[in-house]
Design a protein around this nucleic acid. Structure first.
Lengths: 235, 235
DNA sequence: CATTTTGCTCTACAACGTAGACTTTACGCG
DNA sequence: CGCGTAAAGTCTACGTTGTAGAGCAAAATG
């Protein structure tokens, strides 16, 4: 009979030591596959084959745990502050963030909502880093710090807006998407919602990537003229 | 002694019949004053001096109750689809929505988050109506239905993005705002977050209204050229 | 007056987050 | 090796949550 004490018994079951990373990535996995509400201490403990109470070594709260998940997801986003081509960089980041949102749709509510209850300076560091890095990018490109902040806001505002828009129309199976859409729209009183109902087919095939890219182009061109005007004014 | 049976005993205490409106507005009041988490069935029942279970006559779920609150808040937003000056109208709506957000900051997470879990056609009617009305506005202005949809997305995306941005920096007491900001920012490692720290004073006085108006101006001018080009192309 | 429908209450249960005391494991040092 | 301390993990328990189901009371209907 195999002794459970044997240290070289490296089957999957004999539980490895926990660690913050382990806990957080299990949490993320759970959220991705079953939604935010399924992330309970008990459920997560069960996934890790540990008593729920053990989690409190690695996150003070459930809320802190959620923050940890946010942070972990945001860390998937790479920013290269050294890149001199700020416009290309912003465009790439936009697309990356979009893909990240599609990869972790259930986490987006966290990303969008948690900061509302935490003042900027008290947020998890990983959450603030992108802000700092993009500011750097813009300042190096020639914007004044103040303008860089405004640009950042316009940029991220647009970006999050787009992502929320797109996720609203995102349903896993495109077939089902159209079906549900028609089903749902059919419920709308024809008298009160004529345009929406007429747009059903257009709504059904939504190209988020194209829409995002188009928006970014407009935004960037606007920003560029703003930049060149500012440079012309301060020689 | 006053008989509690007397029907004309119309003091504040003898409870009036419940109604969906009554329940929802009590719920909104609770959310506004104490935050989303305070809206529990039991607490709401207590506010209305009714058994918590009675609420289930007027909302199937807690979730449905939240939807009801969203709907009620969105109904504060007036849209006049008849107005021929679509640009002025869009600008006004933007500012109205911003003020609404400042009036009910705790509801914004709902507005932004709940639609993510409900396909468009199955959402509460009040939530979909603004979409329909703005589509009407744009189509009447000369956009094709498809373009109107794209414009709507750009517009609302920007708008929600801005609101999220602004609410993040919004803290009730401006004094406290600056204090907390500095306090929080001081926590950031100076080496890693130089620009952010340098921007502290700028962050501290944020003028959301101006920022929004500026953004809307840019957006509208972009949209107008798009519109006139489209009109020129289809005579 | 009888009867159905409606509004509301009572009781009960499973699941949740987490405090506090406890046991087990890992590890540094003689 | 062994021993002592600290860290990791567990147990038990409590208060709070959403809501199912049975029942009650009052209003509406015939």
């Amino acid at each position: 009979m195999p002794s459970p004490k044997s240290p070289e018994n490296e089957m999957a079951s004999p539980k490895p030591r926990l660690s913050r990373e382990l806990v957080l990535s299990a949490a993320l996995e759970l959220v991705d596959s079953e939604g935010l509400d399924s992330l309970t201490m008990r459920r997560l403990g069960q996934v890790l084959e540990r008593d729920p109470m053990s989690l409190y070594r690695y996150a003070e709260n459930r809320a802190a745990l959620l923050d940890g998940v946010s942070e972990m997801v945001l860390n998937e986003l790479a920013i290269f502050p050294a890149d001199p081509d700020w416009k290309a960089q912003l465009r790439r980041i936009a697309h990356d963030l979009r893909l990240l949102a599609l990869r972790h749709p259930n986490v987006i509510p966290l990303l969008v909502t948690r900061p509302l209850s935490t003042p900027l300076g008290l947020r998890p560091l990983g959450t603030v880093r992108p802000l700092e890095q993009i500011l750097g990018l813009l300042i190096d490109a020639g914007f004044t710090p103040t303008d860089a902040l405004h640009v950042y806001r316009a940029y991220y505002g647009f970006l999050y807006g787009h992502i929320l828009n797109e996720l609203q129309e995102f349903i896993v199976d495109p077939e089902e998407n159209e079906a549900l859409l028609r089903l749902g729209l059919h419920r709308l009183p024809a008298k009160d919602f004529p345009r929406l109902r007429a747009l059903a087919p257009v709504l059904a095939d939504y190209d988020g990537e194209a829409e995002l890219d188009q928006g970014i182009t407009i935004l960037l061109s606007g920003l560029e003229t703003q930049l060149s005007r500012a440079i012309a004014a301060t020689p």
